[in-house]
């Protein structure tokens, strides 16, 4: 095994650069080093001006998503040796405006998320004194997978629809809406319906499935979207056939 590997890192500083450029750095190639270790080596030893986000280094905070050799990935979970001999291209997440170097602006997701009311909506309020609501392991299993989203944005980066139409509400937001819709404690499905059946909601998805491939936490947003399309179709039919319903 070679003892070093080249990281070809995107640099962009809006005050001085007209457009992003690539810069090569040689970093030690160690068996247990991930791409993020390589970036930290650059920042600590070679060039302190490199900017990127990271925090937990254990695949749970969702900060360090980047494009590695063209694919969206958590850099803390991507081993250098798996991309040897290099050079390894490290670029900012696709489909997002670049703030600087490897940092992208995810404000769009943060603005969209509240639109799907990602919290428990109840018709009644349960006093704390009444204790916990019962929920069987089977009921928990109905939504658990969709609750595992770490908001890392890899799915938005992989999604060709979002790439073309930034108004599309996107895979993670829809999966999180489903996470609450399918929770036995929640009464908010009707409230979320309008946002989800909007043209920028589930119908925007052409079922490419890239989001599910990219997801590092097996959330399966594509499955959530397909499942909701069925629900949405049923609701639409119901609104036509039920008395007093209809558009």
């Amino acid at each position: 095994m070679a003892d070093s590997i080249t990281l070809r890192v995107t640099r962009y500083q809006p005050e001085v650069d007209d457009e992003p450029r690539a810069q090569d750095f040689d970093v030690p190639l160690r068996e247990n080093w991930v791409v993020l270790d390589g970036l930290n080596y650059i920042k600590d030893r070679l060039d302190g001006t490199l900017s990127y986000r990271w925090s937990c280094r254990m695949g749970i905070c969702g900060s360090c998503g980047m494009m590695v050799d063209g694919e969206p990935a958590l850099t803390c979970a991507t081993f250098l040796v798996d991309h040897a001999p290099g050079p390894i291209r490290v670029e900012p997440l696709a489909n997002f405006p670049v703030v600087r170097d490897l940092v992208v602006d995810i404000g769009d997701f943060l603005e969209k998320l509240p639109r799907v009311s990602p919290w428990i909506v109840r018709d009644d309020d349960i006093p704390v004194d009444e204790g916990e609501s019962l929920q069987t392991p089977e009921e928990l299993a109905d939504y658990k997978q969709y609750s595992m989203c770490i908001n890392c944005m890899l799915c938005y980066s992989a999604c060709p629809v979002y790439g073309l139409d930034p108004d599309f509400i996107g895979p993670a937001a829809i999966a999180l809406a489903q996470r609450y819709n399918l929770d036995s404690r929640d009464d908010g499905a009707a409230k979320r319906l309008d946002v989800l059946i909007h043209p920028d909601g589930v119908w925007g998805c052409t079922f490419v499935g890239e989001c599910t491939t990219a997801c590092p936490k097996d959330v399966d947003p594509a499955g959530a979207i397909q499942r909701y399309k069925l629900t949405a179709a049923m609701e639409t039919i119901k609104s036509y056939v039920s008395p007093g319903g209809g558009p």
């Binding site: 919290w119 428990i120 349960i126 916990e132 929920q135 392991p137 928990l140 658990k144 929770d183 404690r185």
Partner: peptide, 15 residues
């Protein structure tokens, strides 16, 4: 729990 935290459960639905 009321806010939706997915606590692991006993078969009868209790936390």
């Amino acid at each position: 729990e009321h806010w939706g935290c997915p606590w692991s459960r006993e078969p009868d639905g209790r936390v």
